[in-house]
Computed example of a mutant assay.
Amino acid sequence: MTERVLILGGRGRIGSSVAQDIATHTQAQITITGRSPDTGKDASSFLGKQVQFLVLDLAEVDKLEKAIANSDLVIHCAGPFHYRDTNVLETCIAQGVNYVDVSDHRSYTSKALNCHEKASAAGVTAIINTGIFPGISNSMVREGVEQFDKPEKIHLSYLVSGSGGAGVTVMRTTFLGLQHPFEAWIRGKWQLVNPYSDREIINFPSPYGRSGVYWFDMPETFTLPHAFPSVKTVITKFGSIPDFYNHLTWIAAHVFPKWLMQRRYMIEFLSHVSHFMTDVTNGFTGIGVAVRSEVEGIKNGKTAIYCSTVVYENTAVASGIGTGTIAQLLLEGKLNKPGVWPVEEALSTDLFIQAIQSRGMKIEQDWL
């Protein structure tokens, strides 16, 4: 029988990239959703006959439950996840349907992980935080950690050119991440860190080179210490190209009044203005992404550093690859781990490397 995949928010930039990857690498019948009929008019034209469109608002509980019950796999791409509850995940668990999402905020990740026992008892495999970062980045860390007798420090750096090919929702996620200090695992203790602080110059692969990155609140900041208990420090930093976007974001994080940055209308205003600006600059910056994972630890009795990097020309497409690989492995029965898991605890390095290589994405590795 043909597998049926439901992609919530599938008409957005990230969701449509996920749909494209699944349509390319599986024979699944895909249903993408959106709140307006207008968003689905050209769904089949850009994704083919494998894809159909369903008008669905997540607030329509009965309709949502029916759509999930008629699916073999649900992929949640309807962000920002700062605002989301776990109703979709819990409905999947109740219906016995496997679940994947592109969540990227610790509040949602924490709520999702609280459903672990229910999912395990129901035999449902739920993989959260898939995409490029978090997602592919987490698997790069796992591969690095496995090189050591005792991994001790993880340093993740992310760089996005312009809009990254994503929509306004990703801009919202960036500004929402500037609202509050967050806890990071540093030298074996949870310590508060200010968002977009402690600028650091990182040497990324060509064409980016040396670029600035800043502390940014990501789910892997707290899921990686849980996955790898011997690690005493986990750093997650993010930056933009061109560099003046970093300075504008720094101003939003440190100069604008906190009460103002916590107002939804301000987030909407900044998100739309930023997206307009990147539409202008995308032409000369591109919309690519670079991820650099550096793991430090003890190997053969000596301290060593293992670095892996990946560069891709379209951030949204890279996110689609990260999520699409997980979906393909679930549909093929190669990934079966009941419970709720972040990527680094669910996906083996062998499966990760095979899936990424099949899509022409190359990860460079080196000892420093």
Rank of each mutant, 00 (worst) to 15 (best):
E183P: 00
F284A: 01
H116D: 12
H272G: 00
F256M: 10
S319W: 05
V295Y: 02
H275F: 15
E143M: 07
K334L: 12
N129P: 04
V295P: 01
Q179D: 03
I251K: 09
A327T: 07
V255N: 03
Y306E: 02
R292I: 04
L64G: 04
I186C: 08
S274F: 15
S308E: 00
T173I: 14
N246R: 05
S293V: 01
T130H: 01
K189E: 15
V280I: 15
M171Q: 11
I68L: 00
I14E: 14
L351K: 08
I251R: 04
C92W: 15
G164P: 03
V102I: 12
I93V: 10
V231M: 05
A119F: 12
G288L: 05
A290M: 07
K150W: 07
W259M: 04
N203S: 14
I14D: 09
S110N: 10
A94W: 11
S44N: 10
F244C: 04
W259C: 04
G40F: 09
W259F: 14
L335I: 08
A121N: 14
S308H: 00
S120T: 12
S110D: 15
I356Q: 07
F222S: 14
S358N: 13
I127L: 02
S274G: 09
Q357W: 07
Q357S: 13
E90Y: 08
F53H: 09
P257T: 11
Y158P: 00
Q27V: 10
T26N: 02
T26Q: 02
P205S: 11
L335K: 00
E60G: 01
P134W: 12
S44T: 15
P225Y: 14
A119W: 10
T169K: 04
H116F: 14
Q191N: 11
A69W: 12
I186P: 03
L224H: 13
K299Y: 06
S120Q: 14
I326A: 09
I22E: 05
I241D: 06
W215K: 03
E220H: 03
K41N: 08
T285E: 01
Y99L: 01
W259Y: 12
S16F: 09
P195G: 10
S358H: 14
A67H: 10
Q20H: 12
D243N: 14
I363A: 03
L260G: 02
A290T: 03
P257N: 07
G131Q: 11
T31R: 13
M266V: 15
W185Y: 15
D104Q: 03
Q52E: 15
V51Q: 05
G297L: 00
C92E: 10
V310D: 01
D101A: 09
S103P: 01
T130N: 07
E146Q: 05
M277V: 14
Y196F: 15
E344Q: 12
D101Q: 04
I14Q: 06
D85A: 07
R263L: 10
P151G: 08
T31I: 11
I201A: 11
H254V: 00
I127M: 03
S197C: 06
V61D: 12
C77N: 09
T86E: 13
R359A: 02
W367L: 00
L58W: 12
A19S: 02
D85I: 08
Q29P: 00
A316V: 06
S308N: 00
N314D: 14
F148D: 03
D21R: 02
K153T: 08
A253I: 08
C77Y: 13
L89K: 02
N70A: 15
R187V: 06
